[in-house]
């Protein structure tokens, strides 16, 4: 029982981070029908920014997190303006390839500065509470709590505000909505900014939980989060959150019961089966004409 609880907690921690990154993929896809493959690397840049602020300026958790989120929001918008906007009317494939290129560019930019893995300093003291065999750290509480709050805020923005309404409208039809006076470019920028800021939050929290960072750290995590977004139904915000927790649950669950070698094989196998049964993901709506 305690073993089960402990593994559930492990899955919740990992799932929160997958979900935060998956949101970035799903938001951009929702509005532009484009898979922003650079998102995993934005997450990495966020972690490095947090590292730099904490190490060289000695900032504590809250300012580090906020500054990293704001800086990445700006970077997200800049990337959208320079790399994706000129291709908005080009075939979707061009934008996806550009996104891959932006991701590799970011990796090698970091690599050029610093090829070495770095140690993330502790942004706040970590307490560990133990109840018999069960142990929980203040960091886990923070990661799960903060991620869930950010997701709730995002859901509120998308569902209840005017900006959210505009986003959903553009996602419904990008050609007609501008005719109604919706500033498409500004809404798209806001979407990229929010996605990148969530990526920075994920990067900061992730590097606190797993305090060795390197320029390739975003690749695998980015793929996993992308898969989480697909499981949940890419384009659907609640789906991305659900997908993140499901993927982490399956990964930890498989590793907990079977030899760990089976982990990725089984979790990706489940994904394939799911996609055969529900090609548009758990909460996604079937969309026939585009891609």
């Amino acid at each position: 029982m305690i073993y089960f609880l402990q593994q559930t907690l492990n899955a919740l921690q990992l799932g929160s981070i997958y979900a935060l990154i998956a949101l970035g993929y799903t938001m951009v896809y929702g509005i532009l029908l484009m898979i922003n493959f650079a998102h995993g690397d934005l997450f990495m840049v966020g972690a490095f920014l947090a590292f730099a602020l904490a190490t060289f300026l000695g900032w504590s958790f809250v300012p580090t997190l906020l500054a990293a989120m704001i800086a990445l929001a700006v970077l997200g918008v800049v990337i959208e303006r320079l790399a994706y906007k000129p291709l908005r009317h080009a075939p979707k494939m061009s934008a996806v390839i550009t996104a891959l290129g932006v991701g590799i560019f970011l990796e090698h930019l970091m690599l050029a500065f610093n090829p070495y893995p770095r140690h993330m300093p502790e942004l706040m003291p970590v307490h560990i509470w133990t109840f018999g065999q069960f142990s929980i750290s203040s960091l886990q509480v923070l990661i799960i709590g903060l991620s869930v709050s950010l997701m709730v805020v995002l859901d509120w923005v998308v569902m209840k505000t005017k900006l959210g309404l505009a986003m959903r409208a553009i996602s419904w039809n990008i050609k007609i909505v501008p005719l109604m006076g919706v500033p498409v470019n500004r809404v798209i920028s806001a979407t990229f900014a929010m996605g990148a800021a969530l990526g920075a939050a994920a990067g900061t929290l992730y590097s606190m939980a797993y305090p060795v960072i390197d320029p390739y750290m975003g690749v695998m995590v980015g793929w996993k989060a992308f898969i989480a977004a697909v499981i949940g139904g890419i384009g659907n915000i609640r789906g991305a959150v659900l997908g993140g927790f499901i993927l982490a649950g399956v990964e930890i669950g498989v590793a907990a019961v079977l030899p760990t070698t089976f982990r990725d094989f089984i979790s990706f196998g489940l994904l394939l089966i799911l996609l055969v049964v529900r090609p548009h993901g758990l909460l996604g709506k079937p969309r026939v004409e585009k891609i």
């Binding site: 402990q6 593994q7 492990n10 797993y210 750290m217 695998m220 760990t260």
Partner: peptide, 10 residues
């Protein structure tokens, strides 16, 4: 490339 070893360590 794995960063999370919590399942194995548990």
């Amino acid at each position: 490339g794995d960063r999370d070893f919590s399942a194995q360590l548990t």
